[in-house]
Design a protein around this nucleic acid. Structure first.
Lengths: 109, 109
DNA sequence: CCCATAATTAAACTAAAGTTGACTTATGAG
DNA sequence: CTCATAAGTCAACTTTAGTTTAATTATGGG
């Protein structure tokens, strides 16, 4: 940082993107919006998060933009750092508990 | 398939792993268990899913084992194919709606 | 307008994820 | 036990995600 300003770090505050409706179905756009919203809401700069996680700025931008071609572990690191997490949703329970160990459905003999 | 058997595809049915408690906090183990449970419940072999998604078996195994060092897009593809999805959880709402566009908190001048 | 800072993008290189093909368990049917 | 099939692993190679450095846009404050 250049000692030009006397203030701690007012810098850019960026227009805060608002948190998407988390009740909607998951999508990369939703994740993207949630991450950016959380970060700006916490008044953190991209470089702050990047440095804290030892992650490069281009990669962080990719994640915030909702590009799915990133490693899962990096997405999780960013989310955890910002206080975001996943919950797994299971459609129309197939599988369920398979109590019957013997033949049950596919019987043809 | 080799014409050895006359049956459609009884093959291996594998011991069905049961679906983890999805109300618990997210973890790779939970995701791992959910994926394996869903797949075995649908009576699909690793190779079935791999072929359907044009994904290699080693990579699918990595994902099912809960290795986070895989690309996000591949995890999402597998999940979608099996009928699994994510829901984003936001801890302790910071950010929220930033209605006040003017100075609000950080006032020091 | 001018300036400082933040966000976004680009290119060349490095590191790591993904593929291929074969091989090694594991497991249940017969 | 034997056999067939599914799961899991390995090594060499290919593809691509990630890094670095730098330049290029925004955007708000003064």
């Amino acid at each position: 940082m250049t000692g030009t300003h006397t203030k701690p770090s007012l810098g850019r505050v960026v227009k805060p993107t608002d948190m998407p409706d988390l009740s909607e179905a998951f999508s990369m756009q939703q994740l993207s919006a949630a991450i950016t919203s959380k970060r700006t809401g916490m008044k953190l700069k991209l470089t702050d998060v990047a440095k804290a996680l030892s992650l490069s700025k281009p990669t962080l931008v990719k994640i915030e933009k909702g590009d799915p071609n990133v490693t899962f572990i990096n997405v999780l690191r960013v989310m955890e750092y910002l206080g975001l997490s996943f919950s797994i949703i299971c459609d129309e329970s197939n599988s369920e508990r398979v109590s019957n160990l013997d033949e049950a459905d596919d019987v043809w003999y």
